[in-house]
């Protein structure tokens, strides 16, 4: 691996870390507030939201520290979560204890409507993360 491609790979990795950090803080802050302020309104959705937030924090730390195995587990979990909870939030919001599927409302969470309230970052980011982890593993194997 040339010095240049190493710089580039770590550069993209830094962007992933930065965006993950923003998302982790956004999800964590919001879920803490929702749980403290209105947990009884949608306990299932808010609990899932808190789990998601903690996993985003773990993913951010794993990416920043280069713990690839933890990064794989957390990022895969997020992708599964946003697809599953996103689908439920649109198709059957009542299953999550939500009144509606509005991704911008007071009961909205990070995975509601595939993360529409977060510019779909929760949907796109795990895919980019997996692509990046794969590319890096491949370049390290060939180095």
């Amino acid at each position: 691996m040339s010095a240049q491609s190493r710089t580039r790979a770590s550069g993209v990795g830094r962007v992933l870390v930065a965006v993950y950090a923003i998302l982790a803080i956004a999800a964590l802050g919001r879920s803490i507030f929702q749980i403290v302020d209105r947990f009884e309104e949608a306990p299932i959705a808010f609990s899932l939201s808190a789990v998601a937030a903690v996993v985003y924090v773990l993913a951010t730390v794993a990416l920043a520290a280069g713990w690839d195995r933890l990064a794989w587990v957390t990022i895969s979990f997020e992708l599964a979560g946003v697809l599953l909870v996103g689908t439920l939030s649109v198709a059957a919001p009542q299953l999550l204890g939500l009144d509606d599927a509005n991704p911008f409302g007071r009961e909205a969470t990070v995975w509601s409507a595939f993360g529409a309230g977060y510019l779909f970052v929760p949907l796109v980011l795990p895919v980019l993360g997996i692509l990046w982890l794969r590319a890096r593993a491949r370049s390290e194997a060939s180095a």
Partner: peptide, 28 residues
């Protein structure tokens, strides 16, 4: 600060991501 410390093209992407985050938060 990130952009001043790490002077690569990717810092511009980080600056942009920060601006989008602010946009969403202002809307909320």
């Amino acid at each position: 600060v990130w952009a001043l410390v790490e002077r690569t093209r990717w810092s511009n992407v980080v600056l942009g991501a920060a601006a989008f985050a602010v946009a969403v938060m202002v809307w909320r």
